[in-house]
Nucleic acid binder design. Sequence first.
RNA 1: CGGAGCGUAGCGCAGUCUGGUAGCGCGCCUGGUUUGGGACCAGGAUGUCGCAGGUUCAAAUCCUGCCGCUCCGACCA
Length: 442
Amino acid sequence: MRLSRYFLPVLKEAPSDAQIVSHQLMLRAGMIRQEAAGIYAWLPLGLRVLKKIEQIVREEMDRAGAIELLMPTLQLADLWRESGRYDAYGPEMLRITDRHERELLYGPTNEEMITEIFRGSVRSYRDLPKNLYHVQWKFRDETRPRFGVMRGREFLMKDAYSFDLDAEGARKAYNRMFVAYLNLFGRMGLKAVPMRADTGPIGGDLSHEFIVLAETGESAVFCHKDLVEMPAPGPDVDWYGDLQPLVNKRTALYAATEEMHDEAAFNALPEGDRLSARGIEVGHIFSFGTKYSEPMKAVVTGPDGKDVPVQMGSYGVGVSRLLGAIIEASHDEAGIIWPESVAPFHVGIVNMRQGDAACDAACETAYAALKAAGKDVLYDDTDARGGAKFATMDLIGLPWQLVVGPKGIAEGVVEIKNRKTGERHTASLDSVLEGLTESKTA
RNA sequence: CGGAGCGUAGCGCAGUCUGGUAGCGCGCCUGGUUUGGGACCAGGAUGUCGCAGGUUCAAAUCCUGCCGCUCCGACCA
């Protein structure tokens, strides 16, 4: 993408409404624009990152055996009356009436609808297990939206729903999501710690929140410090085998959110192992048995010929919130530092002297070569000064900056800078391009 | 929803107390000089001062109502 043709409205100063660094940086980097309290338009740069995150989530869901579909944002009130949640959910649910005076709601979550879809098509235990998910916009009419996309009213969520014949199957489904979540957050460069959590209005008795530690986190959390650095299991696990040991390795160590915190158990840890911090909830998984399948009559015929309500679980990832969480975890004074896996562009080309024939030619060569190699590249072909160009590149946090200037060109070299480490090297354009096109696209 | 605060140019702000017809920095436009980490000079454009009433000769400024946004708390992916 040529910057001169792109839409990247960067700001030098942060709007005063933005309080936390991720919100400020998203506004300054031209990623989002606020339209109302807790409601944001996604500008081109922000949308690129959103889609990359969404895609990682999708790939890890698919790997763990979940199947994607797409449910609508609007739902009929009657569906929620079946589970009893239409009245129970309260004012956080945005209720709408159509021209026929039919009561609708803008979905805050989809347990009812997926249960309705499931019961309409599945009759036999032979069709189990199943895990269906979608990535869709949700609306929760928060009393107090804040911190930009971290607590918006409209937000993008991945929600998966598992269906099993019995408790043992449900536990396996839960474990698959547990491991998938470790992997998916790991791929985004996040250290997300699973913690015992309250189940809230979703219900059920088994639940973990995945928490990214950050000073600006909304919840107080307590855990064993070893959990923070524990690496993700990776993709090569036996998804339909026994994942319990992998899960146990994490759940054996103390980790709880404020609501589930057990001061005595925490204090039993050696003092050096205790970590008391603040965290951002980026995922939440639940196993809730027959809470929905029973009242909504989602039953399958078991091997014994008798109908039983299916065992269910639900698994959410706050996709739009992850942008904020990643920035909170990865930035410096100059701006965002994107992990390569979610960066909006892999490399930015900085033409120090737009209009200089040699510089322009070298940049065009680099631009074409990188695009041909399948790299997302942002070419700053504007006539802004070098300093301003560097500031923009640093702000939007691209992993690599390829600097082409007249001094270097005269000596036959260009500069390549790593945003994260700040390291700069000069080398011939060819060898720099070779390095960039070979480098891993995590 | 309880408490607090803020709405003036694209962004950051001053002006409001003490009423006199709107300003600063950045950004933007034009021309020129520049050019290796947010340049300089000269010129220029941009506002229903959140909205609606009221008081007054006169309202960004005072009064009333409404709307929007933010922060603390309670609640939540």
